[in-house]
C-alpha cells in the first residue's frame, strides 16, 4: 500500500499561492500611476493584501525607510484585535481605507489601501522589523495585512478588481504607452 501514488516530481508543482489562492489586482490605486495592489483570495474567502510586483516600491532597487501602520492620530492598524471564531472587534475596512504608509529612503511616501471591504484580522508586524521581507517576498512573507470579507460579500470581492489576465493587459499597455511617448 506504500507510495503507490507518488507524483511525477519532475514537473514543478504549483506553489502555495497557486494551490490555494486566486490573485486579484487593483491598478493605479487612487489614481496614483503604477501603485498597483494585489489581493490573494484563499478558497476559504480570506484575503491577503500585498503589493503587486509592479508597485513603485518594488522597482529600481528602492529601499524602505519606514513602514507605518498608524494612519492617523486616532487610528493605528497595530491596535487591531480580533477575538473568537467570529473575529469580533476587528476594524472594518472599506475599499479606500488606508492600511499603512511606506516611506522609501528617497523620501517618497506611498499609502497602501485595503482595496476590498472586510474586517481587518492581522497586519504583518514582521515587515516592521525586517523591511527587506517586503522587497524580497512581497506576495508571501512580505504581505501587508489579512482581511476577511463578509460572508455574503466574499463573492463580490473581485467585482472591483482585475483578474491576473486583465491586469497583465493593463501592464503591457502601460509599457507600450511609455515606449510610444518618449520624454
Amino acid at each position: 500500500m506504500d507510495c503507490t501514488e507518488e507524483k511525477d516530481i519532475e514537473t514543478p508543482a504549483p506553489s502555495v499561492i497557486e494551490r490555494y489562492f486566486t490573485r486579484w489586482y487593483k491598478a493605479d490605486v487612487k489614481g496614483q500611476a503604477c501603485e498597483d495592489h494585489c489581493i490573494l483570495q484563499h478558497s476559504n474567502r480570506l484575503c491577503v493584501l500585498t503589493l503587486a510586483e509592479t508597485h513603485p516600491i518594488l522597482q529600481d532597487g528602492r529601499t524602505i525607510k519606514n513602514i507605518n501602520y498608524k494612519i492617523s492620530n486616532g487610528c493605528s492598524r497595530l491596535n487591531n484585535k480580533v477575538a473568537g471564531k467570529s473575529k469580533r472587534g476587528g476594524q472594518f475596512l472599506t475599499e479606500f481605507a488606508p492600511v499603512c504608509r511606506i516611506t522609501c529612503t528617497d523620501e517618497t511616501e506611498y499609502t497602501i489601501y485595503s482595496c476590498i471591504r472586510g474586517r481587518l484580522l492581522e497586519v504583518n508586524e514582521d515587515i516592521l522589523v525586517n523591511s527587506s521581507l517586503l522587497l524580497k517576498k512581497p506576495s508571501t512573507d512580505g504581505y501587508i495585512a489579512l482581511i476577511l470579507p463578509k460572508f455574503e460579500e466574499s463573492k463580490l470581492v473581485k467585482e472591483n478588481l482585475l483578474s491576473r489576465e486583465d491586469f497583465e493587459v493593463v501592464v503591457s499597455k502601460r509599457a507600450a504607452d511609455v515606449q510610444s511617448q518618449p520624454s
Binding site: 490555494y20 484563499h42 476559504n44 480570506l46 480580533v82 477575538a83 473568537g84 473575529k87 484580522l121 489579512l146
Partner: peptide, 13 residues
C-alpha cells in the same frame, strides 16, 4: 504557529 490561513475562517486567531 499563528492560526493557519487555511483554517482561519473557522478558528480563532
Amino acid at each position: 504557529q499563528k492560526t493557519p490561513l487555511r483554517v482561519l475562517h473557522r478558528r480563532a486567531l
